[in-house]
Amino acid sequence: MGEERLRIGELAAAAGVSTRTVDFYTSRGLLSPAGRSGGNFRLYDQSCVGRIAAIRQMEAQGIRLDEIAHALTSAVSGEHAKCVDLAVGPCPADPLALEQYLSSLDAQVHTLRETAGGVDDAHRGAVGVLVARAQVLIATALALSTELLPAVHLIS
């Protein structure tokens, strides 16, 4: 037997958001109903609870909803050519670009380590705040990649 499907109110309650949020995410292409009930209610897969958690975490880190939608749907649609970030590099959502971005991140962390020792006391706090922000973003990426996103089915 298949997994139990949730009506919009049940999904909202399970994810800790309002039904308006579920409607909004659905309208932006972040969520997709799995079907309709006999009473014509939208039904969502259980995996949408985790997907909403992932979306909320990315939003909390300042990632725009259009970027989140692109990242979560382009793997299926292959629409990397329409990526808004192509001017600064390959589409971040393109799985082939991931290794390039990770290599660049490694190089930047190495350079930051080398230069951080030479930062004067007046600017050390500012550098520390920026490094702490980067660390939070990396921790969020790790959490999402290992805990939430693998269990989430991409919209097809």
Rank of each mutant, 00 (worst) to 15 (best):
R113A: 13
L6K: 00
L31Y: 07
P90R: 01
A151G: 13
A81R: 11
Q46E: 15
R124S: 10
V119I: 15
L65V: 03
E147F: 09
A126I: 11
I68R: 00
M1P: 01
I68A: 00
L86A: 09
A54V: 05
L144P: 02
S77N: 03
V119Y: 14
I63M: 08
G16R: 02
D106F: 11
V17E: 04
Q46P: 07
A122C: 09
I52F: 13
I138D: 10
T73N: 01
S156R: 11
A139H: 10
G125F: 08
G78W: 00
A93E: 13
T21N: 08
L149G: 04
R5P: 00
D94K: 00
S18R: 03
S156W: 08
Q135V: 14
G117T: 10
G39L: 12
I63P: 01
Q100D: 07
F24P: 02
L130R: 15
A54W: 03
V76F: 00
R5T: 11
V17I: 09
P95S: 01
D106I: 12
D85A: 14
R56I: 07
A15E: 00
L154Q: 09
H153E: 09
V109A: 14
A116G: 08
E3Y: 07
A97N: 00
C48T: 07
A97L: 02
F41K: 07
Q108G: 07
D23Q: 13
T19P: 03
Q135A: 14
G29V: 02
G16V: 04
Y101P: 00
L43D: 03
P90S: 01
D45S: 14
R28G: 05
Y101N: 01
L65Q: 04
A151R: 10
Q100W: 06
A13R: 02
L96I: 06
L30R: 02
S103D: 06
C83A: 05
P95H: 00
I68N: 00
I52N: 09
K82C: 08
S74E: 00
L31C: 10
A143K: 07
E79G: 08
T115A: 13
Q57C: 11
G2I: 12
R28M: 14
V127H: 12
T19I: 05
A81P: 01
Q108Y: 10
R124Q: 12
Q61K: 11
A122L: 15
G35H: 08
L11H: 01
V84W: 13
V136A: 15
L130W: 06
A75Y: 06
P33S: 05
L149Y: 05
V88S: 12
T21V: 12
L30F: 04
S145F: 06
A97G: 01
T21R: 06
P33Y: 05
A107G: 08
D66I: 02
G29S: 05
S145C: 12
H153R: 13
G35C: 10
R133T: 15
T21C: 06
L43C: 03
T146H: 13
A81G: 09
A143G: 13
A93N: 08
A122M: 12
I55S: 02
D94E: 00
D106Q: 13
D106T: 13
C48Q: 14
G35Y: 11
A15W: 01
R42P: 04
E79L: 11
M58H: 01
